[in-house]
């Protein structure tokens, strides 16, 4: 199927500011507001999150998973907040929100699940890269988590564009988002109010140049693809690693610390 016209229409929508950028669920918006206070109140946070039962259940499920170290299951929001800390709760809330807002049914369900798993894997690897470099650790997880979400926004737009016509293959649809997803991801991050550093890193993760956090995400993106077995390490990976002054033995340590990514990201079902 010729996809060029579709791509042109997507570009026109992005350029014309006509792309629908989904908002965060209300509970997540209020939770972010609470978390951004100088002194967030854990009890207040728990009460905000608990207004959305589906959201709460999902937060507890993910909080109890191997992603956050496993152990005894977490059964209440206050317990989750104590065990994981406010920053992790924020990241988790965004992950859950992204899923609920951006998942599409039908032919794309499977590729989108793979994409969310890849996003989570990228977040974990980005966190380890940042730790290895002893810089930007706190922002790296979120930047990795969000780096590809622009694709989901674009896929939603593509679904509208297609209407009743038979869709291209999932691979073709994803390929259509290659060029624009960084830019759209940055719009999403801005809309969600997650800060300039994350926005810039998401926007530039395919051409990091001077942005350190973008380079961390770019490398994590490549390593995550390889570790999840959905792509071989791209030939430019050493160059991206070199820009971060990471040597092959550093990469080995990062991969070892990231652990069994495939089973960790299985939390996204």
């Amino acid at each position: 199927m010729a996809t060029a016209p579709l791509q042109a229409r997507l570009l026109a929508r992005v350029d014309g500011g006509e792309l629908a950028i989904p908002s965060l669920p209300q509970a997540a918006v209020e939770a972010m507001r609470e978390l951004d206070r100088p002194e967030p109140r854990p009890r207040q946070l728990a009460s905000i999150l608990s207004t959305d039962a589906g959201f709460t259940a999902e937060v507890l499920r993910v909080a109890s998973s191997a992603l956050f170290g496993g152990g005894a299951p977490i059964v209440s929001l206050p317990q989750a907040i104590t065990r994981l800390g406010l920053q992790r709760i924020k990241e988790l809330a965004i992950l859950v929100a992204a899923r609920s807002r951006l998942a599409l049914p039908g032919v794309l369900a499977q590729p989108i699940r793979a994409l969310l798993r890849h996003s989570l894997a990228t977040a974990i690897v980005a966190n380890e890269i940042a730790r290895q470099r002893r810089a930007r650790v706190e922002e790296s997880f979120l930047a990795g988590l969000l780096h590809d979400l622009g694709r989901l926004v674009l896929l939603t737009a593509l679904r509208d564009e297609l209407g009743d016509r038979p869709p291209p293959s999932a691979a073709e649809l994803f390929a259509l988002t290659d060029e624009l997803h960084g830019r759209v991801g940055a719009l999403l991050v801005e809309r969600w109010g997650l800060g300039r550093a994350i926005r810039d890193a998401v926007g530039a993760h395919h051409a990091p140049r001077a942005d350190e956090l973008a380079a961390v995400v770019a490398l994590a993106d490549r390593i995550a693809h390889e570790l999840l077995g959905d792509a071989v390490l791209p030939p430019d990976a050493p160059k991206v690693a070199a820009a971060l002054d990471l040597y092959p033995e550093d990469l080995e340590e990062i991969v070892a610390r990231a652990g069994d990514l495939a089973s960790t990201v299985a939390v996204i079902s």
Binding site: P38, A130, R131, A135, V137, E138
Partner: peptide, 20 residues
């Protein structure tokens, strides 16, 4: 030291917000 909450003199400069 996790460079996120417990920092060393390298990572202290890359925390995104001033702590209270």
């Amino acid at each position: 030291i996790d460079h996120e909450h417990i920092l060393d003199s390298d990572s202290i400069l890359s925390i995104p917000y001033l702590p209270r």
